[in-house]
């Protein structure tokens, strides 16, 4: 009975997949395994996205009877909005600083971890991961506590020393610093662990061979470590870039985007504008689609680089 069923199935397979029937002999299993994820992504991500795209071409008012088609007007409106453009510039600045700082910090610290031969490195690795468990909201609450103007830790010390306290509401630079610091704090441990993983996966004999050739540590770093870890770098950069461009919770809680929009990020801008009853939500959606296009493009470029790098390796 069972084998009969199987034979039938094989025949059916042969009929639809033709000459590829051997290659595709497990196609149904494949589709079955894929189906839940495919359906969920379609229903909860792709469909909402399609609705959003369609809406971005209308002057959409949820309570109006007829929706007015406006072509690209919403996109033109949003790119002419100074705040939105500023928010992008801020995000770029944040992205550059965060990517550079986080890479340097985590890459250097990974070396410290690798050099450790005692058990202490293991303990350290377990502890540095901890901030990764904390949400942006919770981290901001803790950092706000430290930066409180009247009596937080930092200003408390400055005031004791008769120095000028730090005012994140009035000093753009400090506001930016205290948006970036919690972000670095949250991600440092995780990224250090990823870098550490990359380091220990480099075969030891590469270094031994280099030592025999009389290479110093700098040469080893540039010629061996960095090239071997290219994929780790690229993918960490993707993660950090995407994270930085989509920054929301920390500026929202720490500064509210101020002073004078110096910490306003695109997502924060969009969040604030969905509630703006006067602006049609489709303008906001158009902005959100632009954010998506930019993040998508950046990531595609990086993935393309990784892939082409891979095919070189193969």
């Amino acid at each position: 009975m069972k084998s009969e069923g199987k034979a039938k199935l094989n025949a059916f397979h042969a009929k639809i997949f033709g000459k590829n029937k051997f290659k595709y002999r497990y196609a149904f299993t494949g589709y079955a395994l894929l189906a839940p994820a495919f359906i969920l992504l379609t229903v909860f991500v792709v469909v909402p996205l399609l609705i959003a795209i369609v809406r971005s071409f209308f002057d959409y008012r949820s309570y109006a009877d007829v929706q007015k088609f406006v072509g690209l007007d919403n996109y033109l409106t949003i790119i002419r909005t100074t705040s939105f453009v500023n928010s992008f510039l801020n995000a770029l600045l944040f992205a550059v600083i965060i990517v550079v700082a986080q890479l340097l910090l985590s890459f250097s610290f990974a070396h410290v971890l690798k050099a450790d031969k005692s058990g202490f490195g293991l303990v350290t690795r377990a502890i540095v991961y901890i901030p990764y468990l904390i949400s942006g909201v919770a981290a901001s609450i803790v950092f706000l506590f430290m930066t409180n103007y009247g009596g937080g830790l930092i200003n408390g010390i400055l005031l004791q020393l008769d120095m000028k306290p730090i005012a994140i509401d009035m000093e753009k630079t400090w506001a930016r610093v205290f948006v970036i610091l919690p972000t670095l704090w949250l991600g440092f441990g995780y990224n250090a662990l990823v870098m550490y993983a990359g380091l220990i996966n480099i075969p030891k004999d590469y270094y031994e061979a280099a030592t025999l050739d009389g290479a110093n540590w700098w040469n080893k770093l540039i010629k061996i470590t960095v090239p071997s870890m290219m994929n780790y770098f690229l993918l960490t950069i993707v993660g950090l870039l995407t994270g930085a461009l989509a920054m929301f919770e920390i500026p929202f809680m720490m500064t509210g985007g101020g002073p004078l929009e110096s910490t306003l990020t695109p997502v924060l801008y969009l969040f604030n504008n969905y509630r703006n009853v006067l602006q049609s939500s489709s303008v906001t959606i158009a902005g959100a689609i632009l954010v998506m296009i930019i993040i998508g493009t950046l990531n595609s470029v990086v993935f393309f680089l990784v892939q082409s790098k891979k095919s070189e390796d193969d």
């Binding site: 103007y149 306290p165 009035m170």
Partner: peptide, 8 residues
């Protein structure tokens, strides 16, 4: 400095 530079 009649008011704090950052509101708490």
């Amino acid at each position: 400095e009649y008011v704090p530079e950052t509101w708490t």
